[in-house]
Design a protein around this nucleic acid. Sequence first.
DNA 1: GCCTGGATTGTCT
DNA 2: GACAATCCAGGCA
Length: 181
Amino acid sequence: MRRLRRSFFARPSTAVAPEMLNKLLVSGESIGRIVEVEAYMPNDPASHAFRGPTRRNATMFGKAGLLYIYFTYGMHHCANVVTGSIGDGQAVLLRAVTPVAGIDELRARRPGRADRSLADGPGKLCQAFGLDLRHDGVDLCAAASSVFIGDDGVPPPAAPRVGRRVGIKVGVELAWRWRVP
DNA sequence: GCCTGGATTGTCT
DNA sequence: GACAATCCAGGCA
């Protein structure tokens, strides 16, 4: 398995997101295959970055390949990968993965859950992989990082299911979402 | 299985 | 002081 390089992420999130399907999320011994992602672009009203940089979303304006973790709803963490160029404020949200390896570790972090429910949501994914605010800003492309996105040669699905959200203004797309059929 | 309502706290106005 | 890129338990079918 090879670690994805920064050049992979240094593109618009709408280009990166569909190609991240079937890639691997690796955190220590735990590995999961990415099956659902969502793209957040600059000037996207649904994005944390829409109102400009704040302390919370600072990572989103950093360089591509950084891990952006935020806390929401008082109890959940969500994981994103920063894309594009420095200052863009764009990212790809990891929404769901299926367990591939280190399943015992995943089960230990989410006791009482069925295997298929270990990481099939943004909050669950972070809990299962032990990701929290300490990982905000981690460089996925740094060789020393134990958290990264891997490629084991499985290509993205030829025909992913695409979901679109239409925004406040008619005809404006607010977010893009891709999932493995 | 699908739908509904409640939980709970960091962050920004 | 309000809200948020959500999760889960519980009720009903």
